[in-house]
Nucleic acid binder design. Structure first.
Lengths: 144, 144
DNA sequence: TATTGTTATACTCTATAACTATA
DNA sequence: TATAGTTATAGAGTATAACAATA
């Protein structure tokens, strides 16, 4: 069979592509191993931040996770529908809708954190502590 | 105004989140600066690999870019509809559909490569040569 | 005027499942 | 049996535009 040997050539010097492939691999691992959680990584991030910051508003969340406001809406409304968080207008600024975890949300977050710990261990096990620190710093330079 | 100060706390040690944010920032930069190209980064990757490997089959492409076959279909069909590549059954294995760039595709690829070079320069300028090499190697360990 | 939330809409990427044709 | 392509379908993520309420 004449099966061409695929090399990525110049494309392999494409850092954007490497970033996308790495991100995709991590995403795939999470979906494959933690689908029974019923939450995406992004949803977990929202619950996590809400747990750390009760009365968070959607705008704060959007800024903290680099999201559009409309994108944030969909995420937060989904979690609200599932009873994991409640929203109510802020007392000091009635434009803002503050939200916090319900008891159910707190319980789900605990499970989710355990899943994330396991997921992160899979991801980080391939690096030494020094490499990990380096990688974290280099990645932060891209979005910060 | 009582505006909570948002810290990411433990979440900041989440490597998956850093990866997602970095990937998102790169994606955003590409969309913001090269929308007039009319191609996504992924589409450029397909054209690029096809240019380097005439008579590529969809399965080869899927493997080279970590894509599902169905995902690959949508990508390739879109590029075919726009006249950037042509597909025809392989002579040696009639299950395989080999494809290659049209003249239009070759021309578009040249523009796309110029855009990618500019985009990558924006991305890489924040790193020294040594840091870049390190980052490339560390990222490859995730998907390889 | 600017900010916050909201809704409608759309596109990309990804994936699963079931099917056909070929090896 | 296995592989390659195809189609239908669905979900997540992202974003824009336009609007109402509030600051």
């Amino acid at each position: 069979m004449t099966r061409p040997r695929i090399t990525r050539g110049d494309l392999d010097r494409n850092l954007g592509l490497r970033l996308r492939r790495a991100h995709g691999a991590v995403q795939r691992h999470f979906l494959d191993h933690f689908s029974e959680l019923g939450l995406t990584q992004k949803q977990v991030s929202v619950l996590w931040l809400t747990g750390d910051h009760p009365d968070l508003a959607q705008t704060d969340l959007a800024a903290a996770l680099d999201m559009d406001r409309a994108t944030t809406m969909a995420l937060v409304h989904g979690l609200e529908k599932r009873g994991l968080l409640v929203r109510r207008p802020s007392a000091t600024d009635r434009r803002r809708i503050a939200f916090r975890l319900t008891d159910a949300g707190t319980a789900v977050l605990a499970d989710a954190k355990a899943a994330i710990v396991e997921h992160e261990a899979w991801l980080k096990d391939r690096f030494t502590a020094g490499e990990l620190k380096t990688l974290e710093e280099l990645l932060a330079r891209i979005y910060r």
